[in-house]
Design a binder for these strands. Sequence first.
DNA 1: TATACGAAAATCGTATACGAAGTCTCGGGG
DNA 2: CCCCGAGACTTCGTATACGATTTTCGTATA
Lengths: 234, 234
Amino acid sequence: MTTAAESASKAAGKAVSKSGLAYDWLHEQIVAGDLPPGARLVLSQVAEKLDVSVVPVREAVRRLEAEGLVTFEKNVGATVAGIDPVEYLYTMQTLSLVEGAATALSAPAVGPADIARAREVNARMRECLHDFDPVQFTALNREFHSVLFEHCPNPHILDLVHRGWNRLKALRGSTFSYVPERAAESVEEHEQLLSLIERGAPTAEVELAARRHRSATLDAYLARTGESPGFPTL
Amino acid sequence: MTTAAESASKAAGKAVSKSGLAYDWLHEQIVAGDLPPGARLVLSQVAEKLDVSVVPVREAVRRLEAEGLVTFEKNVGATVAGIDPVEYLYTMQTLSLVEGAATALSAPAVGPADIARAREVNARMRECLHDFDPVQFTALNREFHSVLFEHCPNPHILDLVHRGWNRLKALRGSTFSYVPERAAESVEEHEQLLSLIERGAPTAEVELAARRHRSATLDAYLARTGESPGFPTL
DNA sequence: TATACGAAAATCGTATACGAAGTCTCGGGG
DNA sequence: CCCCGAGACTTCGTATACGATTTTCGTATA
């Protein structure tokens, strides 16, 4: 018999312990959107599905809670977190902060090969613009930015960036995932960002540009919904 | 009989579950420095000391791991994290990033009463300068900055600030905790920071000042040890 | 003496079992 | 018809037990 656990293990190829297996499986399900926000996670059910006991599942859920991907209420249960609009604002603001820094800190280590790769990805994003393919566009967008921030030498900041992206990705399918008005602008800003990095612009300048690039999406979202942030912006 | 668990519970007054109890106790021990970096945490021993079983302790340790306060190696055990100098650099850099943002975002909500309180704390820091009392100075320093960033409306950023401070506090007693050359400067910069906030300076300006205030301590540390960061700074 | 090997101890990882707390349902009363 | 309470049901929280893995230490051998 082939359990869901085994296929998850095969897919990720990195689960070493059973708690790690449960974590990987749940993380994948949530980030991929198969477990939508608000979905309930019953420990015993997950345990049975993965053919493990509840203890490792419990541990996995607590880890996901620490990442902000699920909320865990005492004696009630775990639910996939995320649909609160204000939470979206917080996440975007935090991501704009840490991603801006990560991109700036990465910049000196970004070589011509990385630049070329990013340009290629950006070109494909342009195509998605014509084809009206938001899903692919979103995926490419993450790939583009990954190239720019993955060389960040500070692992803490890099980890925060990953967490922010994962939180956002978990919201795909919800209202916030894609702001059409921003898509075209975004592709242009990507080009400007690459130019800055290519010419070795000062760290502060790259940081500001990268931060603005993201917070502009937040602004567009706010403009579209007609909401006011209700708190200061960076 | 009075167990260590009960006294910890009484001290914090917030432990609801046993895993929460174990977490609180370990967190307090680590942050207070009673469990120095490198100390080994054996689950069964901690469990016995707190008069609970190993399962809640295990969960507490994983939570602490997520915060970066302990490292947990498979089939080996948990140790209190922290003495690596490069790790100190990463932590300080991250803290300078998030604390700068938190302070800037707090600024509009900081009222005259807060300002007055901060001034009072800063005055006491001046006294510590004369009395050569680094421990008290460090404590007051945290209190001072708490007043400035605790109004941060974004809970994610605020949480990151708390984590950073806790990590640093856990290192007290190690080489990094106190940079004498910075103490005097620091008190002056506090005054400048208060002036900025008092007059309602732009968010970006407050952020930069708060960030610089912290990263300057990092620079002083590097200057003293003669080390080079080996990676870009913000 | 240094090193390789093996057994024993220590410690973690997980399964199972039971108790505690919360939630839902259904029946009775207003 | 609506409100409310007792019971059962669901789900988490923790304890205990056992297996798996690593480390340690003694011993024999080159």
